[in-house]
Design a protein around this nucleic acid. Structure first.
Lengths: 223, 223
DNA sequence: CAAAAACCACAGAAATTTTAAGGTTTTTGT
DNA sequence: ACAAAAACCTTAAAATTTCTGTGGTTTTTG
C-alpha cells in the first residue's frame, strides 16, 4: 500500500507524538501514513529540502505557528517556514496548527501562505485530524470552526489598511504613546493623529477612546 | 416540542418543496421544523415583516440568489432581500443558496449580508441541509465546499480595488470597448487606459491580453 | 494642579492621480 | 492586403489628495 509522507514541525514534541500515533494507526482507504517530526525552524526547513532533493517531497506539512522561542537575532515563525515551504516544495499541502484562534495571524497566513488547511488546536481530535488529511489531499481547504469564524469576520468587511495604518494600530495596541509613534510609523505627528481619527471613523468608533478602536480592529482581524 | 420557523424564498417552487419535505420530516434533537415558502422578493419581504410584527420572527431565512426575473424597472435580487432581512429581522439566521459558485457574488454577499450560511445547490443533499440547520443555529458559519473555495481564493489576495477599477473590470468582462467606457466609468479615456495597465500589473498579467486579466480577476472573485 | 500627552483646525508643501495631446502599434472589417 | 478604428504608450500640466508644520484647546497623568 502506498505510504503518505507527512512532516510535522512543532516545538511541543509530545503534541506531535499524539498526532503521529493517531495518523499512523488510522486505517486510511488508499494509503498508510508515515510521519516525520522536527522541532525547530531550521531542522524543519532542512528536512523539507532533503526530501525534495530526493524527489520524494512530503505530501502534507503540518506547521505550528509558534516555533522555537526567539533565537539569537530575529525569530523565525511557522508562518515564515510556510512561505519558504511553498517555494521549495510546491506540491506539498500545507496545514497550520495554532494554539489559539488569533484573528490577525490567521488572516495574515491566508495571504502569505494560503494554506490548504488551518486548525485551531483546541478543536483537534482524532476525527478532525483524519478528516483533515483526507480533505486536504482531495478537496481542500480544511478549516476548523474557529479558523472559519476568524475568516468570516475578516471577509465581512472591506476595510483596506495600508502599512502605516497597520503599524499604527499595532503600536497602539501595545500601548505606544502617539507622540512616540513617529519613530516607527513614517508619518509626522499630525499625520499620525489624522490617521487615527480616520481609523476611528472607518471602524465606526468615532469620538470614542482608543480601546474601542483596538477592540474593533482585533475583532475584524487587523491586529 | 418546540417548533423551528424557517422561511424559504426561491422562485423554483419544486426545489423549495424538496427542502421542505426533508427538513420537516427530519428528526432534529430539540425541535420540529415548520417551513414557509415564498417565491418572490416582495412576498418574501412581506412575510418576514409580518412574522416580526407578530413577535415570532423566523429562526432561519433561506434565500435563493436569483429571484424573479427582472421585474418592471429594476430587479431585486436575493442579495437585496438579505440586506433588508438583516435590518428588519436581525435575530434570524440568513443562509444563501446559489445555483452555481460565482466567486464575485459570494464575496459580495459576504460583505453586504455576512450570512450565517452559504450553500451551492449542487452540493446540497439531505445531510448537508440538516447539518446546515444545526450549525447555523448553534455555531455558525456553515459554508459548503465550493463556497469555501471561493472565499479562500479571495482571502488569499490583498488586492484592493476602488469603484472605478471594479466597474472597469466589469465592463471589460462584458466586452465593452475601452473607448466606450468613458460613459460608465468616471475617468477620461487616458485615465481608463492607465488603470487598465495598472490592473494588469496588480493581477500579475502585465503585457498580456484582456482575457487573461478578466480570468485572473474572476478567479479571485472581483468580477 | 501643573506638566504631558492627546486632540483639533488650517494653510501651505508634497505627493499622487488625472487629463489632454501627441504619437505608435495592433486589431478589425472588407 | 489595406485602410480605418481601436488600443496602447509617453509626457507635461492640471487637479486632487495627502502630509506637514504651526498654534492652539482639551484631556489625562503623576
Amino acid at each position: 500500500m502506498k505510504s503518505l509522507k507527512i512532516l510535522a514541525v512543532d516545538d511541543h514534541k509530545m503534541t506531535m507524538l499524539g498526532y503521529k500515533y493517531i495518523l499512523e494507526d488510522f486505517d486510511f482507504k488508499d494509503f498508510k501514513v508515515k510521519m516525520d517530526m522536527e522541532d525547530s525552524f531550521d531542522s524543519g526547513k532542512l528536512k523539507i529540502e532533503e526530501e525534495v532533493k530526493k524527489d520524494s517531497p512530503y505530501d502534507i506539512i503540518l506547521l505550528d505557528i509558534q516555533l522555537s522561542p526567539i533565537k539569537e537575532g530575529y525569530s523565525r515563525t511557522g508562518e515564515d517556514l510556510g512561505i519558504i515551504s511553498r517555494k521549495i516544495s510546491p506540491n506539498s499541502k500545507i496545514v497550520f496548527l495554532s494554539s489559539f484562534s488569533d484573528n490577525y495571524r490567521i488572516n495574515s497566513i491566508m495571504q502569505t501562505v494560503n494554506p490548504e488547511g488551518y486548525m485551531v488546536k483546541t478543536e483537534i481530535n482524532e476525527d478532525a485530524l483524519t478528516d483533515m488529511v483526507n480533505t486536504v489531499l482531495t478537496a481542500p481547504p480544511f478549516y476548523t470552526k474557529k479558523a472559519l469564524i476568524a475568516i468570516r469576520n475578516r471577509m465581512s468587511t472591506n476595510i483596506h489598511l495600508d502599512d502605516n495604518d497597520k503599524k499604527l494600530l499595532y503600536y497602539l495596541s501595545i500601548g505606544t504613546k502617539t507622540k512616540d509613534m513617529v519613530e516607527f510609523v513614517s508619518l509626522s505627528l499630525s499625520g499620525i493623529e489624522n490617521r487615527k481619527r480616520q481609523l476611528k471613523e472607518i471602524f465606526g468608533v468615532d469620538k470614542e477612546n482608543d480601546y474601542k478602536l483596538i477592540t474593533a480592529a482585533k475583532e475584524k482581524g487587523f491586529i
